[in-house]
Structures are given as structure tokens and as C-alpha cells.
């Protein structure tokens, strides 16, 4: 039994270590200040070179926007589900929709985003269309983990606060949310990681751009890191591959950093 467990762990860890090793080694080979701070030159059909600052700035904007949309909605939804819904019909429906969303292929969501935001709303390939589409994919994670984290807070605490004359909203603000916070943060960071690693929905809605984000959220395509990984890794040139390696390295490092920060923050929060 122990042998089997160890074998399984090795089975999982080896590919993971391999991936990290590859991208860290390759990433460190190609990383340089200019590569991070200059824009990409050329497109898929011609020679590609330069740096990835356009993708970094685009990804930051897309993620910031998507997170700003997802977190409040997911939080409010989760609070509603756990504290106010009493498992009524509406909440059942909401949970069902969220589960379907979470289980959906990101390609399909991307296509939907394309039809709704890019075409129907007429926003074109844009940061807003990309971010909204991303947030559809990110929402279920925040929504569900918030609900679950709140449900884990014992009812004794709610009763105790009520007996002190605390209103429901005061109890939520001052107590329940606080204790659910580690779980909620985990959900938020999970959703950010999901958003960071999405490619398909952004291909449909943000397209790609060689230029740094210029401050306009509509009618302007934006670059993003996963595009470079996905598209440039398939191009037959070393300089394109290097950009893909670099982007992968940046993505992996940021996800790692987010997780480390999350752990520290969660630990801080869990302490009294």
C-alpha cells in the first residue's frame, strides 16, 4: 500500500518537475530586462522577435479587470447562497447554472463571448470583451468557494452574535466573512490562476496585439501571455520559441508567486 502511494506520488511529481525544470531552465536562458520591457515585433506569418511587454501589460489589465468583475459578484453570490437563500428554488437554479459554467469548455465560453461582446455589443476585440469572458469562467470558483467557506462557519457563532443583538449583515461583516476568509481567498486565487492560464476565450475576444495596452478598453485588441505560448511555440523559429519559453516562465512564476502570497495571507487571516 505504502509502495503504491509512493509510486503514485512519483508518477504525479515527475511530469510536474519536468515541466517546471524545462521552463525554468529555458526561461532563465532567455530572460532579460529588454525581453520583458520591449514589445513583440512581427506577427505569426513573418519573423517574430522582440520582447513580451505587450503581453505582460495586456495580461495584467485583463486579469485586473476580470478579477474586479468576478470577485464582487462571486462574493455577493456566495454570501447570498450561504446566508440568505435558505436553499430556495432560485438558489438551486443559481447553483446549477454556476456548476454548468464551471464544467463548460472554455472554448465554448470564448465563442459565446465573441458573439455577445465582440459582435452583438459591438465592442470588437477588446480588453473589456476579454475580461468579461474571462470572468464568466472565473466566477464559479469564487461563487462556490465563498458559499462553501461560509457554510463551514459553525451556526453557534451566528446564534451567539444574534443573541447579542447583532443583525444578520453585522454578523456577516464582522464575524462570518472573517472566518470564511481563508477559504474565500483560496477561491479567488484559484480563479485568478484559472483566468491566467486561459487561452481560448481570449483568442476569440481579445485577439492579440503587439502594442502595449494603451488605456482603451474597447475596440482595441490586447496582447496576453498565453497567446504567445500557444501560437509562437508552433512557429518554426528559435526567436519565437524563446518568446514562448519566456512567457511560460513568467506565467508559471506569477502563479507560483500568487500561491505563495495566498498562503501567507491566509495564514495571517487564520491567526487571531
Amino acid at each position: 500500500m505504502t509502495g503504491l502511494t509512493v509510486f503514485s506520488i512519483v508518477l504525479v511529481l515527475v511530469p510536474l518537475a519536468d515541466i517546471i525544470y524545462l521552463f525554468v531552465i529555458k526561461g532563465l536562458e532567455v530572460i532579460s530586462w529588454p525581453a520583458l520591457t520591449t514589445i513583440t515585433v512581427g506577427t505569426g506569418v513573418e519573423f517574430v522577435g522582440g520582447g513580451i511587454s505587450n503581453a505582460i501589460s495586456g495580461t495584467v489589465v485583463l486579469m485586473a479587470l476580470a478579477t474586479a468583475i468576478t470577485v464582487p459578484l462571486g462574493l455577493l453570490g456566495g454570501i447570498y447562497m450561504a446566508e440568505f437563500s435558505n436553499n430556495n428554488k432560485f438558489s438551486e437554479a443559481l447553483r446549477f447554472v454556476s456548476d454548468v459554467l464551471a464544467g463548460n469548455s472554455s472554448m465554448v465560453v470564448g465563442l459565446a463571448g465573441y458573439f455577445i461582446f465582440v459582435l452583438y455589443f459591438g465592442w470588437g476585440y477588446s480588453a473589456l470583451a476579454g475580461a468579461l469572458t474571462l470572468s464568466i469562467l472565473m466566477f464559479p470558483y469564487v461563487f462556490r468557494t465563498t458559499e462553501l467557506a461560509l457554510r463551514k462557519v459553525p451556526d453557534d457563532i451566528r446564534e451567539g452574535a444574534r443573541a447579542l443583538g447583532s443583525t444578520k449583515s453585522t454578523t456577516i461583516n464582522r464575524l462570518t466573512l472573517r472566518f470564511a476568509m481563508p477559504g474565500i481567498l483560496t477561491g479567488i486565487l484559484l480563479s485568478v490562476s484559472i483566468g491566467l492560464s486561459e487561452t481560448a476565450p481570449l483568442l476569440f475576444t481579445a485577439s492579440f496585439s503587439n502594442y502595449n495596452f494603451n488605456g482603451s478598453f474597447l475596440h482595441t485588441p490586447v496582447g496576453f501571455l498565453t497567446y504567445i505560448v500557444y501560437v509562437y511555440s508552433q512557429l518554426p523559429s528559435n526567436s519565437a520559441h524563446n518568446l514562448a519559453y519566456l512567457s511560460s516562465f513568467v506565467l508559471i512564476t506569477s502563479i507560483l508567486l500568487i500561491n505563495i502570497v495566498a498562503r501567507v495571507v491566509v495564514r495571517r487571516f487564520s491567526k487571531v
Binding site: 459553525p154 453557534d156 457563532i157 446564534e159 451567539g160 452574535a161 444574534r162 443573541a163 447579542l164 443583538g165 447583532s166 443583525t167 464575524l175 472573517r178 472566518f179 487571531v272
Partner: peptide, 20 residues
């Protein structure tokens, strides 16, 4: 709400809030 500030309650199982 006001009533409960005048009529306090202690429960069967101690239920301190997990704060200081």
C-alpha cells in the same frame, strides 16, 4: 435587536467567537 441587548443569552455549548 434592542430587545436582545436587554435580554442576554448564554447557550448550552460554549460558543466564543474565534477571535481574541
Amino acid at each position: 435587536i434592542l430587545l436582545r441587548t436587554r435580554v442576554g443569552m448564554v447557550f448550552q455549548k460554549p460558543n466564543p467567537f474565534p477571535i481574541s
